[in-house]
Amino acid sequence: MKPVNFDYERPATLQAALALLANEERIAKPVAGSQSLGPMLNLRLVQPELLVDITAIPELAAIREDKGVLVLGACVTHAALEDGGYPDPTRGVLAQVAAGIAYRAVRNRGTVGGSLAHADPAADWVSALIALGADVVVAGTSGRRIVPAKDFVVGVFETSLAPGELVAEIRIPGLSANARWGYAKICRKAGEFSHATGAVLADPARAFARAVIGAVSGPPIVVDDAKIAEQDPGEAWVAAQLAGTPLGDDAYQIRIHHVALKRAIAAASIQ
């Protein structure tokens, strides 16, 4: 349970970090809280030659509001979001999601950008940020680009990040006063990885209505439908969404994904 030998740098600026990651002579991985990469290193599932620690870069640790949009630096921890005390146009949604991630000791180190870039289908932020209609600000040596979260996650542990790029910021649109949010996941033990995730946001004032079926065998399933937060679409509908995926023939998987979505819709309906 020990990682392979690797080198380690902790640059103080984003430019320096990107320069290290752009150097193709060594296999380099960016790291923040190391709560997903750490286990993978210990299990030797990942064998990098260089880790670039991005937690000493001040701009990546900031939380700010920009015209009704909550802007999170990639290195903001789950615990910081759980504890609140920041301007929050999402009206507590992030704190609620963050509080359910793994365990406090993990939340104290794990980061929102790291979780998204890791793109574990079971990760809370993968489903929640897509459901919230968040944008991901990706930085590379040639500049920045903005990718909607739903296009950022393209598969299991797979994102649209190009080699040498990293997540710099996540931009989350604020929720209107009458917006309704619901989030639920199925875990057999508190804090373990989700087996099925459901997330729903209906924000009529912004003409935004989305349901996400997460913890599937690919990127989360996203359905934009104004009626989705109003009532349970039923198990057959969920089965149709999963059809053609590796989970599509599994009655148990269809059932738990339906239950997660149903619970999210129920939570959204009582606000």
Binding site: M1, Y8, R10, V31, S34, Q35, G38, P39, N42, L43, L51, D53, T55, A79, Y103, R104, A105, V106, N108, R109
Partner: peptide, 28 residues
Amino acid sequence: GCEHGVCGACTVLLDGRPVRSCITLAVA
């Protein structure tokens, strides 16, 4: 214990907050 962040036996405080010492690099 597990050395991959699951069991919690190795929990210590870093800057007053609990962290899992098996998935926190000393150099960090």
